[in-house]
Amino acid sequence: MTDAITVSGLRKAFGRTVALDGLDLTVAEGEVHGFLGPNGSGKSTTLRALLGLLRPDAGTASVLGRDPWHDATELHRDLAYVPGDVVLWPTLTGGETIDLLGRLRGGVDEDRRRHLVERFELDETKKGKAYSKGNRQKVALIAALASDARLLLLDEPTAGLDPLMEQVFQDELVAVRRDGRTVLLSSHILSEVERACDRVSIVRAGKVVDSGSLAELRGLTRTRVRASLTDVPDVAEASRWPGVGDVAVDGTHLSCAVEAEHLGTLVAELARRGVTGLTCQPPTLEELFLARYDRTSPAYEEVPT
């Protein structure tokens, strides 16, 4: 599979704020790629650089085989974008805006447009000023999804959508993927990412700190283990077991966190100590991300990057 997006060492500073600090990112053709990270970590800046709206200070980016800064216009023929803050022209109606953006892209696919307006239940006759946040978002989504772009750059596309509309968006995303189109989706909604994305990249302070499938990322985070034992070790001893940390002992109960690769060793050790009860909890998605978002989190230091 070829890559739709390859970015390496991308740097962008606004005055003294360093928004992107050597960002590397690869998105394969045909995949839906999740782009996650805390507020202000550089997701929107990355997307703008990929669009050629911002000129990077250093590093290289290639989108659909083109340099986004130099070949912006050509590149945009194959690409659609939903900005993070959707703003509409106050005096144009939603329908006019969809048509305008479609025509700027070279034409509107009438069938797809009609289908999407129906699915998203958009009232096209309202003026931009009169739309609610979610409805503004729908206008931008319909304009982007109605195109036959090979690559969709979506910056928090479901912000403001109600759960029903979010479901519609998920369905449309499935259709997009079925068509073999590529999507880079920035989001804060983990369940959305889990359902829709083949792979994710996590960005923090302008750098990608992790990239891979969710299963791979899960493997990098420790499993929480709770056991009732007849022969309880003390905390210091248990902490010396390979890959084990965050140990607590309470009567006959031991609880600790263990890296996935050392889980087998730990279970063998517990068996020798007469385990009478055992629960293993893989990290929840929230834990997975919290550990990577929070630079002060102790768990983070133990996550190999």
């Binding site: 144009l92 329908g95 305008l100 309202k126 000023k129």
Partner: peptide, 26 residues
């Protein structure tokens, strides 16, 4: 009160100039 408008764009609203002209009409 705000009024609603057409659900489809007129022919002239097809490019940057059409948009700028439309927004300058008032």
């Amino acid at each position: 009160p705000a009024r609603s408008g057409p659900s489809r764009a007129g022919r002239s609203l097809g490019g940057p100039l059409g948009l700028a002209a439309r927004l300058a009409t008032g």
